[in-house]
Amino acid sequence: MSKKELNIFKLLSEKPWEDSQKVIDDQHDGKTLALSKAKLGVRTIMVVSTVIFSLFVVSYSDRMLVHDWRSLSEPWLLWVNTIILIFTSFVFHKTKVLSDKNEFEKAKNYLLIVGFLTFAFITGQLLVWQYYVNLGQYASTNPANAFFYLFTALHGVHVLGGLFFWGRATTKLFTKNFSVLKIKQAIELCAIYWHFLLIVWFILFGLMIAT
């Protein structure tokens, strides 16, 4: 057992009254997982978000069976946005690799690119909304539209939330008054979150083009 892993069954069947277990227990440092608090926090948030999006997907699958469902035709702009998002994730990964190697000067510029691309993605999504509104495809026109607006809005809110933490990390990096460990972790966690949002977008977008 060189690494702490959460085996819930093993844990729940511990026998704390046995002498051998007691010795191990007395040495316990009080942590269940070998993870930092922040990392576990991000993971918990991702789990909660996953539940939210899954429930929306379930509702979508249930609602689309009704005869009044008229699928939207996706504009090419949505594909552009998807590619932007993929590229953002890629750049963020590069940033993380750079910060792991302590090359913060380079990482700085990459972080700015990430921010720019993410804002471009949000703008792109808003343009798609405008495109649909101009076509007269409002949220109330059809349930498929309603879900489209809902999915993009919700995904967008998650992206904006991520941008808040991206902003904090970037500002810290630019003030030069940062702890190396903290900034590394901030970049890593933001990168994980961006990949998560990319996967969520794949699922939502895939669901919408497949139906």
Partner: peptide, 30 residues
């Protein structure tokens, strides 16, 4: 959330040192 964490690597090391294979004498405070 970025302002509140400890070094991941240090924690991993701490986890190693409290593994089951090494049984320290009773009542040493880790």
């Amino acid at each position: 959330m970025t302002d509140e964490y400890t070094d991941n690597k240090i924690e991993t090391k701490a986890a190693d040192s409290s593994s089951g294979s090494y049984v320290p004498p009773a009542e040493t405070i880790p």
